[in-house]
Every structure is written in structure tokens, then in C-alpha cells.
Design a protein around this nucleic acid. Structure first.
Length: 488
DNA sequence: TTTTGAGTTGTTCGA
DNA sequence: GTCGAACAACTCAAA
């Protein structure tokens, strides 16, 4: 009996375009699929509640798919540093394969495990499933890591087309179920990933289908319906004009190579009316994900430390009431509240609205971006260690490639520009359902007759603005002025 | 080494 | 209503 190969699944919960799995399958020998549930001792950042919900369903889906292929998923409890080497030794594995992660704690953990495996005469091999271009492969002419998106993306594109995705193995040689039962696996249901008392996940379940099949369906639907005009319409939260692939990418239910090539193929085959510039725009959004991972790799503290140290002196306000109003979608600014409620109900928020709500928390309330980052981390199903951190820093202006100091979003004009009929607001803020488009982004300015016709009493059914934007804008400009470079 | 052009996503004001 | 200019000055990346 040949020694088995262990495939350790992490942020790559898919069968197709999974190099670790394909390499293991290629030998024809026995394969054992393993997932190790996170443990604080691993030093990695614990997932938020919405992510845990997603993980539960994604693991369930992966487990079904792997069983069908012949190598059922075995779920173990961490810490991984102990569980993985012990398990590999117990089953007399010859080799453990996994796909790489890019955070510092994750890399250190993997390095430790590799060492531990070698001591036991077990080989370890890692692969790239998560990125088109791994961080160390993208460099400028000087060889230094790049800090600005445009040069980064130019350099990445200069490397040529990303490799084509590899297909899922058609079958795997697993262990007999009887021998699997003795290996100490845990039922997914027993991991405690789902919310209890109360179960708030109804809106998530309605909005999403976690798992590889759900990811493929979402991609197909996007290419058929949302891709055409993507370049311009992606900014419209009232339309279904973004791919909404982010949570699927986060958990690796689909990979960027698959997305890249599927989009290019659809355009080349004329199966979509999307233009070449729609394609380039969509691919560059995938590029932003790559750039975030690039930043995270070279700046592991991205989620907690200002990329630009001068922001360490930023005069953040302590505003627990404001933070709570923001979290609950009760700021009195309809577009902000709609976004925050979409997040709470569905675990996701449209990209344009993320910028608006983040700008509001940071610039209008002067609340530290890290508090917003934490809230997103807990409530987003796509909470991603690289994207979330890099994006919050970008809005704060503390990040790489900083926004100009004067870029402070006006929640009224942003609403009017990107949700012109107010349909998005009405969908998530039912109190405002009866307010006509003309006033929906600034109900406090509406004539009393309009408000009463809409059945709305400000301050009772829906709050008045918790802060005056014009005042807040000036206050933010002053705060930014105080951390200006070269202030002597 | 020095220089030069560029840098995701905006707002306001005045003509 | 529309349009262009002004809004700090800096850092990055490449020539």
C-alpha cells in the first residue's frame, strides 16, 4: 500500500484550478483531504461571524464534492501546528500539499509545519491557487516592491497572460470510509460556526449560495447579465452590475485565473456584448485584489498600522454613539444607512457604497478607520485580510497610493449621482419607501407636505442627520491639515 | 543622481 | 444648468 498524500485545504475550497489537489491526484495514489479548524494558538486572525457562517456552508459543499470524487473531507481541530504534523504521521503520509497564503502569521505557521513534517520524514509542497501573480514576482525596473497601483498593474500585465486554470480531477483514490472513521475527524456541524440565539443568518442564506457550484453559477450569471457596460455601471448600487464574486474569491471557491480567463473567453467568443474596455476594467478590479495582497505581503500589519506613519498623529475622535449609529444604519444620511443595512442583512455591500460609508465614518465622524475595518471584518462574508485593510487605509488616506486630501465624499451628491432614482435606498431603508427621488437623499430638506405624504416624521421614523456634512467636511480638512507632511 | 510626470473612485465655487 | 479651475504638497517610479 503506497503512503497517502495529504491535501490540506485552507482558503482554497474548490476542486477546479486547485494545484495542490491536482498534483496529489496526478500520482494516482491515495489522497486524504483535510481541513483544520482555526485555533487562537495559530496566531492568525479569527474569522468574523459572517465569515464563519460562510465557512460552514462552504465546507459542507466541499465535503459533498470531495465525497463524490472519492476522497471525503476530514475536518480536524487545531492548532494546525500540532494537528497537521501529527495527522500526517498517523496516516504515514509521504507528502502534505497545500496552496499558499500570504499573511505573515500564516506564512510563519506554514514554515513551522514544513519543518516539523521534515523531522518526521514527510515532505511538504506548496502551490499558488489564490493569485494571478504572487507578490515576489511583481517588481518594478528597480526591483523594489511597488507601492502605487498603476505601475504595479503595468508590471503585472507585462508578465503576460496568467496561466490557464487546471480542471478538477475526475476522481481521487481515497481511504476506505471505515479507516477514515478512526482518524478523529469532527463533524462540520460541531465546529460551532453558525450563529445561535438568535440566528441572524436568514438574509445571508437568501442572498448567497456558498460553495464552488454557487461560485460558478455567480460567475456565469455575471458574464451573461452584468458584464456588458461593467466599466460604467459597476458604480451603480441600484443595479446588479458587479460580479459579487468577492466572498467566493475570499474562500477560494473560485480562483482569479478562472475568473480572468472566463471573462476573456466570453468576450473573445462573442458570448457577451461586453466591450474590450469592460473586460479590461473587470480584470483591473481583479488586479486591485492582487495589489492588496502585494501590500499585505510586504506590510503584514496593514490591518492595524498606518501605512503612512504620519497618520499616527491623526486627531481621531472617540464617538461611541456615532459609531453605533453608523453600524446600525441610523446616521440620517440615506445612502450611508442603506449601505450599512445591506451589510447587516446580506453580509455584503456594493463597492461604491463601501467607499461612501467608509468616508462618512472616517471624514464626517473622524472615527479611526480601524474601528470601521473591524466592523467590516465581523459582518462581511467577503472579509479578506488584504482587501479589507488596504481599502480602509485607502479611504483614510493613510494607505499606499493615498487619495488626495480633499477627496471627502458628500453623501448627498454621491447618493444622487449613483442611486439616481433612490431605488437602492428604498430597498434597504423601508422608512423612506414613500419619499420621491427628488428628496430621497436629503429628506430633511423636503417640504413638510412631501414628508407627511410619505408617512415620514424625521426624528421618529427615521433620524435627522447625526452630523452636518458641511461642518464635518471643514473639520476633516483641518484634521488632515494637522498631519500634513513636512509640518515643522 | 536628478528630474519629471503621474497618482481609481471628489467637491465646491464662480463664471 | 454646465463647465473649468482650484483645492497642499508629496511620494513613487522610471527615464
Amino acid at each position: 500500500m503506497p503512503r497517502p498524500v495529504v491535501v490540506w485545504f485552507r482558503d482554497d475550497l474548490r476542486l477546479a484550478d486547485n494545484p495542490a489537489l491536482s498534483a496529489a491526484a496526478a500520482t494516482g495514489g491515495p489522497v486524504i483531504s483535510v481541513y483544520v479548524h482555526e485555533h487562537r494558538q495559530d496566531g492568525t486572525r479569527p474569522m468574523g461571524a459572517a465569515s464563519r457562517w460562510w465557512l460552514h456552508h462552504s465546507l459542507t459543499s466541499l465535503s459533498r464534492d470531495l465525497s463524490r470524487l472519492g476522497a471525503p473531507l476530514l475536518v480536524l481541530r487545531g492548532p494546525a501546528a500540532i494537528a497537521v504534523p501529527e495527522f500526517a504521521a498517523k496516516v504515514s503520509a509521504s507528502l502534505v500539499r497545500w496552496n499558499r497564503r500570504y499573511g505573515l502569521a500564516e506564512r510563519e505557521l506554514d514554515a513551522d509545519i514544513k519543518t516539523e513534517l521534515r523531522k518526521r520524514d514527510i515532505a511538504a509542497e506548496s502551490h499558488n491557487a489564490a493569485l494571478l501573480h504572487e507578490p515576489w514576482t511583481v517588481k518594478g525596473k528597480t526591483g523594489a516592491p511597488l507601492k502605487v497601483f498603476s505601475p504595479f498593474w503595468r508590471a503585472a500585465l507585462a508578465g503576460g497572460e496568467p496561466p490557464a486554470p487546471v480542471p478538477a480531477p475526475s476522481r481521487l483514490t481515497g481511504l476506505a470510509p471505515s479507516s477514515l472513521a478512526d482518524l478523529g475527524g469532527v463533524a462540520i456541524e460541531d465546529l460551532g460556526l453558525l450563529p445561535t440565539g438568535p440566528d441572524w443568518s436568514g438574509g445571508l442564506a437568501e442572498a448567497w449560495t456558498p460553495g464552488e457550484a454557487g461560485a460558478q453559477a455567480r460567475l456565469a450569471a455575471f458574464l451573461d447579465d452584468g458584464f456588458k457596460g461593467y466599466g460604467a455601471l459597476r458604480d451603480r448600487p441600484d443595479l446588479a452590475s458587479t460580479s459579487a464574486l468577492s466572498p467566493h474569491l475570499r474562500f477560494g471557491e473560485i480562483g482569479p485565473r478562472q475568473v480572468w480567463h472566463a471573462a476573456a473567453f466570453a468576450v473573445a467568443q462573442g458570448r457577451t456584448k461586453a466591450s474590450a474596455s469592460d473586460l479590461a476594467k473587470f480584470q483591473s478590479e481583479v488586479g486591485w485584489r492582487e495589489f492588496s495582497y502585494h501590500l499585505l505581503f510586504y506590510h503584514p500589519d496593514l490591518a492595524t498600522v498606518n501605512f503612512q506613519p504620519r497618520f499616527d498623529a491623526f486627531p481621531w475622535r472617540s464617538d461611541p454613539a456615532g459609531l453605533t449609529a453608523w453600524q446600525k444604519g441610523l446616521t440620517g444620511y440615506p445612502i450611508v444607512d442603506a449601505g450599512m443595512r445591506q451589510l447587516w442583512q446580506t453580509g455584503w455591500m456594493h463597492n461604491r457604497v463601501r467607499m461612501i460609508v467608509a468616508s462618512f465614518l472616517i471624514k464626517d465622524l473622524l472615527v479611526d478607520w480601524r474601528q470601521g475595518e473591524e466592523w467590516f471584518w465581523d459582518t462581511l462574508v467577503d472579509a479578506d485580510p488584504a482587501n479589507n485593510a488596504a481599502s480602509w487605509q485607502w479611504v483614510a488616506g493613510s494607505g499606499a497610493d493615498a487619495a488626495p486630501y480633499f477627496r471627502i465624499f458628500n453623501p448627498i451628491s454621491q447618493g444622487e449621482k449613483f442611486d439616481p432614482q433612490g431605488d437602492y435606498v428604498r430597498r434597504f431603508v423601508p422608512e423612506l419607501a414613500g419619499v420621491p427621488a427628488e428628496w430621497i437623499h436629503k429628506p430633511w430638506e423636503a417640504p413638510p407636505a412631501v414628508l407627511s405624504a410619505a408617512g415620514l416624521r424625521l426624528g421618529q421614523g427615521y433620524p435627522r442627520p447625526i452630523v452636518d456634512h458641511a461642518m464635518a467636511r471643514n473639520r476633516a480638512l483641518g484634521a488632515i491639515e494637522s498631519v500634513k507632511p513636512n509640518v515643522n
